Each structure stands twice: as structure tokens, then as C-alpha cells.
Simulated scan of single mutants.
Amino acid sequence: MPGGRLTLEDRRLIAAWLKDGLGYAEIARRLERPTSTISREVARNSGHSGYRAEEASRVTGERARRRRKPPAPAAPAVSRGYDRDPEAVRRFETDFTEMMVETGLPRMMSRVLACLSVSDDGVHTATELAQRLQVSPASISNAVGYLETQAMLKRERDGRRERYVVDEEMPQRVWAESVRANQEWVKIARRGTEVLGTSTPAGARMDDLARFHARINEVMLDDRVAVFVADAVTVLAALLHAGRPLALESLSIALGWSSDRVLEAVRVAVEHPHVAGPVTVVSGGGEYRAVPLVERLTAAQVAALDS
């Protein structure tokens, strides 16, 4: 291929044309290469018997192998004192990476995410990731930028350094981002249906696409509720145990959760009463409290209990 590396066939042609008395410039013109490429090739690979194609190809291959450094193995994950087999951890990290690659995530992004995931604290700086994976800082930067757009990790400031974090809320963030992205598909497909017209093949195709993603969105939203069911029950248990109204900040501190996570759990408990059985959450004055779900009782039952 013009501009690429010389092939064995190229070298055979060079040898034949040299025997025919052609100069370097003419050989270069015929092969569509720079004259300097041909002159270097002949100078480097000519022996006592002159230039021979097979010998030139073998010597060039050996030279390239000598220059090529063997890849350095990734540094082992920090054990934090846990009794683990380092090789088993390394194999799992590789298998985890390959699974993500096979399901569509680019390889470098998969390597970064797997590296963070097998770390017990789920935190690394760019320098640590580059050292662990034996890649350039630029590769880490590109991978982190992509993973952040997919809500698969988040950034934190540690003085002048940036740290990249995979925490327990990552699956919920990824799910929420997936729901948002799918809603964009619905909107653009519906717009395409209007522009193209449902009576046309292209418009009908867009209409099918809009309906398909709308249905997926319904399923995803139902499943998203399921993601927060355990959190909703935990918040209700915390409020019942406290026996008093608690502010959002107090709940966040007590549970060790972010404010967003507490708010999402409360939302599910309120909007989906079946989640927590006979208990729900009410808010007032910036505080939350757990109360009986009286809607489960008839008016007569409530009156009898109040008497």
C-alpha cells in the first residue's frame, strides 16, 4: 500500500528492477514511494551478494522485534490487608474487562472501569490508573471523559489532584442516564415521524422506532423503581426507629448516603405505596416522618381505631 511498510512483494520488485539497472527514483515512482524509502531499504539490507528480497524481509522483521518492548504487566490491585490471591484478582479483572468489551464498551474504558471496580475504595487518581494499566495519561483522560458522560464514574477534588470514583450509587446513576438517553430517542423519533409523515416508508419507520423506544422507556422506568425499593424500605425503617421527624441532612448523615439518594428513596416510597406495605413518608417543615398508610383502612375502620 503506498505510504505503508514495504511488503515482501515490494522487495521482490525492488530486487528485480535493480537487476534490470533501474535507479532508485524510477523504482520509487513505480512503487509510489519516496525515493528516500527505496535508498534506505537497499542501503540497510544489502549484503555481500547485493540486495535480496527474502533476506531483506527477514532482517527487517528481526530488527522490528528487537525494538519492540514486551508489555509490562499491570500492577497488582492494592489488597488493603485482605487475604486474596493476587493472580485470581488479576484474572478476574481481565475477565471483567473482556465482558465489558464484548458487550460494547471500548477497551480502554473497560480497563479503567474494571481497575476502579476491583479496588476496595473504588478511587484512583489519573497517575495511579496510568501506572496500574501501563498506559499514557492521555489514554486515561480520554477514557475517564467517556465514562463520565455515561455516568459510570464521577470526579472528586483532592487538593490539587483529581480522583475518579466508582461508588455504590454508580448503578443508579447509570440507570438514570439510560432512561434519559432513551427519552431522547423517543423525542427525536417522534419529531422524525412528523417531518417525514407516517404515510411514507421513512416516516413509518420513524413511527415504529418511536413506539419501540417508548415501550422500552416504560419498562425501564418500572425497573428504575425496583432499583430504589430497598432504599425506600431502609428510609422508612430509619424513620420508624427514630420515632421522630428527621431532616434530609440528618437522614443522609445517619444512613451514610447522599442527599440525592435519600430524596429518590422518599420519592419511591410516596409515589409507590405498595413498596412499604402499611407505612409511607410525609414531609413538612423540611422534615420527613413515617406514618401509617391509612388509605388501606376503610372509613369505619379508622373511626373505630380512633374511638
Rank of each mutant, 00 (worst) to 15 (best):
P2A: 13
G3C: 07
T7Q: 08
D10N: 13
D10T: 11
R11C: 06
A16Y: 09
L18I: 12
K19M: 03
L22R: 15
G23N: 15
L31E: 02
L31A: 05
R33T: 04
R33D: 03
T35M: 15
T35A: 14
S39I: 12
S39D: 10
V42R: 03
A43G: 09
A43M: 06
S46H: 05
S49D: 13
R52L: 10
E55L: 13
S57V: 06
G61S: 14
G61T: 14
E62R: 15
R67L: 15
R68Q: 12
K69W: 11
P70S: 14
P71R: 13
P73E: 06
P76K: 08
D85L: 08
D95S: 13
D95I: 10
T97F: 00
M100P: 01
M100R: 04
V101M: 06
E102Y: 10
T103V: 14
T103E: 11
G104R: 00
M108C: 06
L113A: 05
V123N: 02
H124C: 07
T125K: 03
A130W: 08
Q131T: 14
N142Y: 11
V144E: 04
V144G: 04
L147E: 02
T149R: 15
T149F: 01
R157I: 04
D158T: 04
E162P: 00
R163C: 04
V165G: 01
D167A: 03
E168V: 14
E168T: 09
E168F: 09
E169H: 09
M170C: 10
P171S: 04
R173W: 04
V179E: 04
R180K: 13
R180S: 11
A181S: 12
V186T: 10
V186F: 11
G192N: 13
T193D: 03
T193Q: 09
E194S: 13
L196Q: 12
G197W: 07
R205L: 14
M206K: 00
M206E: 09
L209N: 03
R211Q: 13
H213D: 03
V219L: 14
L221K: 15
D222N: 12
D223A: 13
A226C: 11
A230K: 04
D231Y: 05
A232Q: 00
A232K: 00
A238W: 06
A242Q: 08
R244H: 09
A247H: 08
A247Q: 11
L248H: 05
S252E: 04
I253L: 15
A254I: 02
A254C: 04
V262L: 00
L263Q: 09
V266Y: 01
R267S: 06
V268S: 00
E271G: 01
H272F: 12
H272K: 11
P273D: 01
V275S: 02
G277E: 07
T280F: 01
V281Y: 00
V281Q: 00
G285L: 10
R289D: 02
P292F: 01
E295L: 11
R296K: 09
Q301K: 02
Q301V: 03
S307N: 11
